[in-house]
């Protein structure tokens, strides 16, 4: 287990701060499918944002703007919870047409 920190360097009880949490690139876990949103259907209820287990739903202020390529692991939860059927899982290689959002951020920040 190289690269892991010794007990002395861990905060009591394992409290994590955003700054000292490592950022595993869960986006690399996707197995061939990714979510895409049809914005014309999106009512911005943000259930996808509430449910996403990897905080991969991107917002600007309180408006849905897309998915975070770095974190989205393709779990399909967003598509399952979307009450208006605006999110669909598509093959990874699907091109992103206009009105469908997919954002990639290699830095993960």
């Amino acid at each position: 287990m190289s690269g892991l920190r010794p007990w002395q360097e861990l905060s009591p009880g394992g409290t994590i701060r955003p700054t000292d949490a490592e950022k595993p690139k869960t986006g690399s876990w996707r197995t061939g499918i990714k979510p895409l949103a049809d914005l014309s259907k999106c009512t911005n209820c943000l259930l996808c944002w509430l449910y996403c287990p990897d905080s991969a739903i991107l917002l600007e202020d309180t408006t849905f703007v897309g998915f975070d390529d770095y974190f989205c692991k393709g779990c399909e939860v967003c598509a399952a919870v979307c009450p208006v059927g605006a999110i669909e899982m598509v093959p990874e290689e699907t091109e992103t047409p206009a009105g469908w959002v997919m954002r990639s951020d290699e830095s993960g920040s």
């Binding site: 287990m1 892991l4 920190r5 010794p6 007990w7 861990l10 009591p12 009880g13 394992g14 409290t15 994590i16 701060r17 955003p18 949490a21």
Partner: peptide
């Protein structure tokens, strides 16, 4: 101001260290 997560998940990689902390405490 300082957002934190508590009650974390720790497996083979960190469980021993975090439980060991209590010995020190």
């Amino acid at each position: 101001e300082q957002v934190t997560t508590k009650g974390i998940f720790a497996l083979q990689d960190y469980y021993t260290e975090l439980r060991y902390q209590m010995n020190a405490a």
